[in-house]
C-alpha cells in the first residue's frame, strides 16, 4: 500500500486476558498517534472478547477492531495472518505495532510479507521524523550500536516492540472506544494449522532475560560462599540472578542461563543491581536497557559507577543484609 492513516496496535490475548505488552503498545501508540495527529486503534482477535474490549477503551484506544470467533481463541498463525491481511487491506492503517513476544514475532513478519511492507524488529524505542514517518530504534551487535529503521515508501509502516520497554497509560474507568466488529468467514477447513492444546508452565524463577528485577554478581563477590547473598537479594526482590563472565568461569553461576553481556544474555529489567561488578563494556551493553541501574562495589573507581543511576562504594556483604531488611518493610 502506498498510503495509510491511523496508528494500529495488535493486542495479544491469552486465555481470554489482554497481555501486558498489548497495554504497553497502547501507551507508545498514543504517543505516536499524538505526533502524527491520527487515531490510536487496537486490533483484538479472540473468543468471548467482551470484557477485553472494555479494557482496551479504558487503556486509551480510540477504536477497537475486534474479531470474535472460536477459531481465534488460541493463536494460530494461518488464521491470524489471513485475517490481519484482510483488515489492513480494508482499513489501510499508517502504522502497525505488534509486541515482540513469541506470538507477535511469529505473526508480524508473515503479515508484513502478505501486505508487502517493511517491518522493524524488536524495537526498544520509537519516534516520528519530520515527514511523519515512523522510526524504530533497534540495538545491534550486542547493543554497541543503535539503528533507526525507517520504512519510507510502504504502508502500513510495521514494527515489533520489545515487551517491557513502554509504559502503559493510566486506566480510565468507563472510557470507551468505538468498536468495529470484524466478520470471520474463515473456517478450520480453510487452513493448514490446527491448535491441539495449550500448556502453561509454572515457573519458579523467571529467566534472567525476561525478569523485571535482576541482581547480578561479578568477580568481586569473591567466592561461592558469598554467592548466596546475590541469590538472597534476588529472592527478596522477587527477581532473577545474573552474572558477569568470571563467576560463570569459576562455577558460581551458570554460563548458559545466567551470563549477561555481549556474548550472553541481554537483560531489560526495571531494576538491575550489580554486586561486585566492575563494569566492563561487554557486560554493560547487556544491561544498558535496564530502567534503573544500581551498583554496589567496594572499589570507588569501578567504571560501573559512571554507567549506574545509583552507586554505593561499599562492601556488598554489609549493604545487602540491610537492604533485604529494608525491603521487608515494603513487601510485608
Amino acid at each position: 500500500m502506498k498510503e495509510g492513516k491511523g496508528v494500529w496496535v495488535f493486542i495479544e490475548q491469552r486465555g481470554g486476558k489482554v497481555s501486558e505488552v498489548g497495554l504497553e503498545l497502547l501507551g507508545i501508540g498514543r504517543e505516536l498517534a499524538g505526533k502524527v495527529n491520527e487515531k490510536l486503534e487496537a486490533v483484538l482477535f479472540g473468543y468471548q472478547t467482551g470484557s477485553m474490549v472494555d479494557e482496551l477503551g479504558a487503556y486509551g484506544a480510540d477504536t477497537v477492531y475486534v474479531a470474535d470467533d472460536p477459531l481465534l481463541e488460541v493463536y494460530n498463525s494461518d488464521a491470524y495472518a489471513v485475517l490481519m491481511q484482510e483488515l489492513i487491506e480494508q482499513y489501510k492503517p499508517g502504522m502497525m505495532i505488534v509486541g515482540a513476544s513469541n506470538i507477535g514475532s511469529d505473526l508480524a513478519p508473515r503479515v508484513a510479507a502478505k501486505v508487502n511492507t517493511g517491518l522493524s524488529a524488536h524495537c526498544i524505542g520509537f519516534d516520528v521524523d519530520e515527514h511523519g514517518k515512523l522510526l524504530g530504534k533497534v540495538p545491534g551487535f550486542g547493543g554497541a550500536v543503535m539503528a533507526d529503521i525507517i520504512c519510507p515508501e510502504d504502508y502500513p509502516q510495521m514494527a515489533t516492540a520489545r515487551p517491557g520497554f513502554f509504559q502503559k497509560l493510566e486506566r480510565v474507568e468507563g472510557r470507551k472506544a468505538d468498536v468495529v466488529k470484524v466478520e470471520v468467514k474463515l473456517r478450520q477447513e480453510d487452513i493448514n494449522i490446527k491448535v491441539l492444546g495449550t500448556s502453561k508452565e509454572e515457573l519458579t524463577a523467571r529467566p534472567v532475560e525476561s525478569a523485571d528485577v535482576v541482581v547480578a554478581g561479578g568477580f568481586g563477590i569473591g567466592g561461592e560462599e558469598n554467592w548466596k547473598l546475590v541469590e538472597e537479594l534476588a529472592d527478596a526482590l522477587n527477581g532473577s540472578v545474573g552474572a558477569t563472565r568470571p563467576p560463570c568461569d569459576e562455577g558460581w553461576a551458570d554460563l548458559e542461563s545466567q551470563m549477561i553481556g555481549q556474548s550472553g544474555k541481554t537483560v531489560r529489567p526495571s531494576l538491575y543491581i550489580g554486586l561486585g561488578v566492575s563494569g566492563a563494556v561487554h557486560h554493560l551493553v547487556g544491561i544498558q536497557d535496564s530502567k534503573v541501574i544500581v551498583a554496589i562495589n567496594k572499589d570507588s573507581k569501578a567504571p560501573i559507577f559512571e554507567a549506574a543511576d545509583y552507586g554505593i562504594a561499599a562492601d556488598f556483604r554489609q549493604i545487602v543484609p540491610s537492604l533485604i531488611e529494608e525491603l521487608k518493610s515494603i513487601t510485608g
Binding site: 508484513a112 508487502n116 511492507t117 517493511g118 517491518l119 522493524s120 521524523d129 522510526l135 540495538p139 545491534g140 547493543g143 554497541a144 550500536v145 543503535m146 539503528a147 533507526d148 529503521i149 525507517i150 520504512c151 519510507p152 515508501e153 510502504d154 563494556v281 554493560l284 551493553v285 544498558q288 541501574i293 559507577f305 559512571e306 554507567a307 549506574a308 543511576d309 545509583y310 552507586g311 554505593i312 562504594a313
Partner: peptide, 20 residues
C-alpha cells in the same frame, strides 16, 4: 527492501551516577 537504516548511533552508556 522496504526498510532502510535512517541512521546509526553508538550508544552512550553514561548515567547520572548518584553516589549514596
Amino acid at each position: 527492501s522496504p526498510t532502510q537504516v535512517a541512521g546509526v548511533t553508538t550508544i552512550e552508556l553514561k548515567r547520572k551516577g548518584e553516589m549514596l
